[in-house]
Design a binder for these strands. Structure first.
Lengths: 136, 136
DNA sequence: TAATCTTTGCAATCGAGTTGCGGTAAATGC
DNA sequence: GCATTTACCGCAACTCGATTGCAAAGATTA
């Protein structure tokens, strides 16, 4: 497991207090977080600073964003070696009961045969249902 | 091809002027539309009436909604016989150049092997890239 | 017909996301 | 080391899509 400092160094993002704290927070959780989630968890931090940090992280592929249909964009730390291109795609699972979003790194995404002359750049694949904790 | 009236009757949605116009409009276009798109196309209609109509349609499975990552929910008429359950899933293609969203009814969605005890209810599968018109 | 329920139009509100700006800190040039 | 430039941060304000309250109009039922 890489530390915050290592990740930022590899991804060429300058290390600052805000960035370290936000990244450490994201690393400590196994589920994708919304801006609001992070705000609530780190109440002493400024909303817009977190926002801009997330944008910086996303641009530099430290994290990836997920539109899970909850109305709030969520963010999760990229896996080691991820370049956020189509080969790094994975499903996201959104639990309609507890509103949590998981990265399903272990579920392979098959080749998608697009219509003629369509070009794949990336994808947002969200599967919705009940997570193991809510499916009882 | 079913008429608006037939569709509303089958889906047990009471027929009104607003509903007929909105549904006819959606049927006349091959691409998914946002609330704003519809508002712009039907300027004499009230925003909230269109909004509530879309909600009613969605509840009664006349249309389905798509989160394509553009920031605006888009809507498209369900195919005949669609029940909006997992078997009716299809990919959506979002063109990052022209901002249009297509339903890819002809591209099959493979079985997704979820982790143990996860239950699939529905999914939002958006593939992004360039459509044939923009990929030149 | 009267009472009730649904739909519609208008205006107001909500909330996630975003931006402007001044201040501070870090990096760069001399 | 000091001045200059650049990047980052915190605060407040704003944008805009989505949603709701309310009253009037229309449809349905008793």
């Amino acid at each position: 497991m890489q530390t915050e400092e290592e990740i930022l160094k590899i991804k060429k993002v300058k290390n600052t207090a805000v960035r370290t704290v936000v990244l450490r927070h994201l690393l400590s959780l196994e589920k994708a977080q919304s801006l609001k989630d992070i705000e609530n968890a780190l109440p002493y931090m400024d909303r817009s600073s977190i926002f801009r940090t997330l944008k910086t992280f996303e641009e530099n592929k430290v994290i990836h964003s997920i539109e899970d249909g909850s109305g709030m964009t969520k963010y999760a730390v990229c896996a080691e070696g991820c370049n956020c291109d189509p080969k790094d795609l994975h499903y996201h699972f959104y639990c309609t009961n507890c509103d949590k979003t998981f990265c399903l790194f272990d579920v392979p995404i098959p080749n998608i045969q697009l219509p003629k002359n369509f070009k794949l750049q990336q994808a947002n694949m969200v599967v919705k249902g009940l997570c193991d904790n809510c499916n009882r």
